[in-house]
């Protein structure tokens, strides 16, 4: 798995580096990659990716009277929907739940997965490939297959409609993701450096803290982003294992805006809620684009 932990960005750079011995080829690719056709292609991709976000942003800025005017650009932009949303009391608590539950799950998943991934990358122990295969199987597992039993068990153990009641299933499905990503990253760490540092007089702990940790952290961080996005996205567990705002997360809560507002069209509020939960993701994507791409493709493709 040579290319495993290499991000898309880096893959591109690698491909170019490979070309650098072939200067003419490289120049030809440069030219090819910068022509108007490629620019149009690039712009088309951006439009494809961003257009639905633009129209939902537009809906969120429309007032009661304009929401059905069918125009892409709001004629009288207003923040009314956002105000209603925060005043309604139906959104703030789910938002807190979403943030809290996703963050706690992310921290737990990354810590537990780091242990496992370190063992997979560095140690020889029985059941290693079983662990990897099992994790892969769980990643492909249909969540609907376990919501019934969980619903029943959670009701009798008091986990129903609580944060831990969501954190546990989230964790289970986040772990395979984190283990695969982290194992791919950890395998790329030159652990020999640790021994080198010890030969140079560092204590084992110093060697770990000053040499290995800095090399491992970016991978850990990348997995954290991917796990967070995964938790942030969940709908099925949240709608099945909660009944009140006690633990219900934003995606599930939006489904109930629809049901509870019979007289006013909730489209505006849903759109506003959509924008609020999407903005942090867009910021994360902007800042950590390279890491996310690296993490998503880590381990997925053989070199």
């Amino acid at each position: 798995m040579t290319t495993t932990a290499i991000g898309g960005e880096q893959v591109g750079a690698d491909a170019q580096a490979a070309h650098s011995t072939w200067a003419p080829t490289r120049r030809r690719h440069r030219e090819a990659g910068r022509g108007p056709a490629w620019t149009i292609g690039a712009l088309a991709i951006m439009a494809y990716a961003l257009f639905p976000v633009a129209w939902i942003a537009s809906l969120s800025l429309k007032g009661e009277g304009d929401i059905a005017d069918g125009k892409l650009i709001p004629t009288k932009p207003t923040l009314d929907n956002y105000r209603t949303l925060f005043d309604s009391g139906e959104f703030v608590r789910p938002l807190i739940n979403s943030i809290g539950i996703s963050l706690i799950t992310t921290v737990l998943a990354v810590v537990i997965a780091s242990f496992a991934a370190y063992a997979i990358a560095r140690l020889d122990f029985p059941g290693k490939s079983l662990l990897l295969t099992g994790a892969l199987a769980i990643a492909m597992f249909p969540p609907v297959s376990i919501i019934g039993p969980l619903f029943n068990i959670w009701r009798s153990t008091g986990l129903y409609d609580t944060w831990p009641g969501l954190i546990l299933p989230f964790l289970t499905f986040a772990l395979p993701l984190a283990i695969w990503t982290l194992a791919a990253f950890f395998r790329e760490i030159p652990f020999d450096l640790e021994q080198a540092a010890q030969v140079d007089g560092a204590t084992p702990f110093q060697a770990f803290r000053k040499v290995i940790l800095p090399l491992a952290l970016p991978g850990v961080f990348t997995s954290a982003i991917i796990v967070f996005i995964f938790c942030w996205n969940d709908f099925l567990f949240s709608i099945s294992l909660t009944s009140t705002d006690e633990a219900r997360t934003v995606p599930a809560a939006t489904a109930f805006f629809t049901a509870s507002s019979n007289f006013i069209n909730p489209t505006g509020q849903i759109a506003a809620a959509a924008i609020i939960v999407t903005v942090p993701i867009i910021i994360m994507v902007l800042v950590f684009q390279r890491r996310i791409v690296a993490g998503l493709t880590a381990g997925a493709v053989k070199g």
Binding site: G33, A49, P52, T278, Q289, L296
Partner: peptide
């Protein structure tokens, strides 16, 4: 495509990241 490379990569992650 080398033009707009970074912008394309960012844009393409938006659908992935959206709930």
């Amino acid at each position: 495509a080398l033009s707009l490379r970074r912008s394309v990569r960012v844009a393409i992650l938006v659908p992935y990241g959206i709930i």
